[in-house]
Simulated scan of single mutants.
Amino acid sequence: MKKIKTKEAVGHVLCHDITQIIKGVKKGVAFKKGHIVTEEDIPVLLSIGKENLYIWEKREGMLHENEAAKILYNICKNDYMCPSEIKEGKIELIAEKDGVLKVDIERLCKVNSLGEMMIATRHNNFPVKKGDKLAGTRIIPLVIEQEKMDKAVEVAGDKPLIKIMPFKHKKVGIVTTGSEVFYGRIKDTFGPVIREKLAEYDTEVLGQKILNDNPNEITQAIKDFINEGAELIICTGGMSVDPDDTTPSAIKNTGAKIVSYGAPVLPGAMFLLSYYKNTIPILGLPGCVMYAKRTIFDLVLPRVMADDKITLEDLASLGHGGLCLSCDVCSFPNCGFGK
């Protein structure tokens, strides 16, 4: 810290807040710690009574918080995101495209464990929209050693800590099973729910086939949609363990690889995830998707729409945070479900 005359302070960095008091009008911070003094600031500072200022004295090997924040931003930045203005030594990353946010949690923790610096992000694997905040970066003190920031770059590695996987356009086929719907004994209420959720994304529904519980017919319906160009198949009904619920076996008989039949999520335990020829997702949705506000489907669909391959380990990890509290007023995704 160094004391200099205010008239000579242009370009220097303030080491403390400066308060301005105008009787009956204003009392508050006029210039915050870390502010870089400009030519226009000089008359204001003098009017406050500041003939002298305490400024940060630039030393070899030391970085101001704004410089350090830029380094942390560069550690994070990737395609489809841009920086905010630097404010009080903080830079935020803003989404420029809708998609799924991916965070390398392990490397993020390593950087944050270095001390005197921080990167805070949104949750991994959650959908974001253009304009959303993705992360914020800053150092804790006003200045920091260049050596420490070099260490942060080393720990972070060559790849950005976060990325956005943009949503893709997808053609979708819906296969609904159940004799009660097929014979018209009850009205299909599954289809409208699925279409409503798909409408949140860039999708084209090729159609909906309503079948009884014949597994061969279900298998053929799935294959027919794939032959029509479907890039996502959603099967509803027949997903329990009752003997006449044959949808899981019908999906398997297409030749699709079953990732998991079952997920540690409530609502949504009887969910099935598979991939046909390792590329086309075939989802088996449990009955809860029809009536519950949010389910396993809401956690999986964004990743499917971004072509983010979901593994058994990914599904297993949903057990931590996989209990929906069925709140009277649903605030998803701004809640703990799926996090």
Rank of each mutant, 00 (worst) to 15 (best):
K223N: 15
N214Q: 05
D244S: 09
T247Y: 00
K7Y: 08
K5W: 06
G99N: 07
P215L: 03
V10T: 13
D298P: 08
T177D: 11
V259T: 10
D224Y: 10
I280V: 14
A68K: 00
G178T: 06
I22D: 07
D104H: 05
T137N: 11
R303Q: 14
I48A: 03
I48F: 01
V37W: 12
A152E: 01
K159G: 00
A306V: 01
G237D: 13
G238R: 05
A199P: 08
T176M: 14
P141M: 10
Q208K: 15
A269Q: 14
V289C: 09
M305L: 04
M118Q: 13
E204I: 15
I258M: 09
I226H: 09
T246Y: 06
K168L: 10
K159R: 11
E51I: 04
V241K: 04
S84V: 04
P248A: 02
S240P: 06
M117A: 07
S113F: 12
S47C: 12
N253D: 14
L53T: 02
V172Q: 05
L142E: 04
K151I: 02
K102L: 14
I139V: 13
E60V: 15
I22P: 00
R107C: 02
T177L: 11
Y276S: 02
T203R: 13
A199K: 15
E147Q: 12
P141T: 00
G49T: 04
E200D: 14
T246C: 06
G28V: 07
I21M: 08
G287M: 10
F126H: 08
Q20W: 06
K27G: 07
K168T: 04
P243T: 03
I282T: 01
N52C: 04
N212Q: 00
K70L: 03
M81S: 13
I48H: 05
E106L: 09
M118G: 12
G238V: 03
K90W: 03
D150W: 02
S179T: 11
K27L: 01
M81H: 07
I234H: 14
S326Q: 11
S84F: 01
T121A: 08
G229R: 13
A120W: 13
F190T: 13
G336R: 10
S331A: 11
R122K: 14
I258D: 08
E154F: 05
I42P: 05
G49S: 03
E51C: 05
D98K: 04
K23L: 12
S274A: 12
G229T: 10
G191H: 12
G24Q: 01
K151V: 02
Y73W: 13
I94Q: 02
G178F: 04
E57R: 05
E65L: 03
G287W: 14
M62Y: 14
K309T: 12
F225P: 04
T311L: 10
G157H: 06
D158V: 07
V300W: 09
H16R: 15
H12F: 09
I194N: 00
I91V: 11
L315F: 02
